[in-house]
Computed example of a mutant assay.
Amino acid sequence: MKTSFVSNLAVQNAMRLTLQQSQLEMMKLQQEMTSGVWADTGTALGSTTSRSVNLKAELDRLKNIKDTNSLATQRLSASQGALSTMRTSVEEIRKQLISAKGTDDKGKLDVAHTTFVTQLSAFTAAANTQFNNEYVFAGVNSDVRPLTDYGPGSPAKVAFDTALSTFQAANGNVALKDFTSAQMTDFINNTLQPMFLGSGWDGTWSQASSDNIQTRISPNEVIETSSNTNTTGVRQFMMATVIATELMKPELSTAARDTALTAAQDHLEKGLTGIIQMGAQIGVAEGRVKAANTSIDNQVKLINTHILDIEGVDPTETSSRLTALKTQIEISYTLTARIQELSLINYL
């Protein structure tokens, strides 16, 4: 019979290795207790991991859509605020048109003219509202100022002056103050109307795109989340206000001025109807975004529940394993300490 010795150093190293492995396992269990899910999902789930990955990818997609919806909601809210200002301008001009009807009083006409100019400027500023450095009424051309300012030297003012001069020349160089009611009607219907309601509008009065921003507000729904200054409401308002500003001057005959006033009122009412419709469309879009967000929140909750079902650990079992492992480590510490005390010197 042959005997051999076992080094206490070898035993000590083996215990140290076991202790290290136990400590790593304890760290994983503590992490699982805190997070409620497996520390190493791939190892724990094996082939089932693909389900978890797919669900997390869908979760990320829904969260991205929700972030996009947040921007769309803010843009729509900014649009509603601007439309409120635009409606106020329409109402102020309407009041002045009513007060100016049938009057030849220069003072009243001058006050009305000042209101027309002021409210036209306010309307234009509201139509050029920006949110997040984007123009909300520019359609997809959100980096371009949509509505042209109307004032001396502006393309819109030059276009009007050119159209008026051309009409006057075609009618024997008739002065504006000598316009008859028939000439005023002819000028408004056949010269101004195509400028505002026809092809003359694009580029001169508006730089906006007629195509609005499309936003995916849910996995299966895409809607328009902006508007533009090419809508009928804006065109009609601008035509009405330019008529009131330029063609209702005190020096005109009463008949010609009343003809212009009647036309301005008609186009203003159509403009107000169109602007209200713009607000309604934006309101519908706001409602659909809100409903989509509610649906996304419910989907996110459901997906999170599924992920937890797949990746979740049993807290009772994990706690028991952690307790057992702590006990094992404590025993290992005790044994290691005793082994370290083994020495032949202690027995000599």
Results as ranks from 00 to 15, higher is better:
residue 11 V to T: 12
residue 15 M to H: 10
residue 35 S to T: 10
residue 36 G to N: 03
residue 37 V to Q: 00
residue 42 G to K: 06
residue 42 G to D: 06
residue 54 N to R: 06
residue 56 K to D: 06
residue 58 E to N: 14
residue 59 L to E: 14
residue 63 K to V: 09
residue 73 T to R: 10
residue 74 Q to S: 15
residue 78 A to T: 11
residue 79 S to K: 04
residue 83 L to Q: 06
residue 87 R to V: 12
residue 92 E to W: 03
residue 96 Q to H: 09
residue 98 I to K: 05
residue 102 G to K: 04
residue 102 G to W: 03
residue 108 K to T: 13
residue 109 L to P: 02
residue 111 V to G: 04
residue 121 S to L: 07
residue 122 A to M: 04
residue 126 A to H: 07
residue 129 T to G: 02
residue 129 T to R: 13
residue 131 F to G: 08
residue 132 N to Y: 05
residue 135 Y to N: 01
residue 136 V to E: 01
residue 138 A to P: 00
residue 139 G to W: 02
residue 148 T to M: 01
residue 151 G to Q: 09
residue 173 N to L: 08
residue 175 A to D: 08
residue 177 K to E: 03
residue 181 S to G: 13
residue 182 A to W: 02
residue 191 T to Y: 04
residue 192 L to H: 03
residue 192 L to S: 09
residue 193 Q to T: 15
residue 196 F to R: 06
residue 203 G to P: 01
residue 212 N to T: 13
residue 217 I to F: 13
residue 226 S to Y: 11
residue 227 S to E: 01
residue 229 T to G: 07
residue 231 T to D: 14
residue 236 Q to T: 02
residue 236 Q to A: 11
residue 255 A to H: 12
residue 268 L to H: 08
residue 268 L to P: 02
residue 269 E to G: 12
residue 270 K to M: 06
residue 271 G to D: 06
residue 275 I to E: 07
residue 282 I to Y: 03
residue 291 A to D: 08
residue 291 A to V: 00
residue 292 A to I: 01
residue 303 I to F: 01
residue 304 N to F: 06
residue 306 H to R: 05
residue 307 I to V: 14
residue 310 I to L: 13
residue 310 I to T: 01
residue 312 G to T: 07
residue 314 D to K: 02
residue 323 T to H: 15
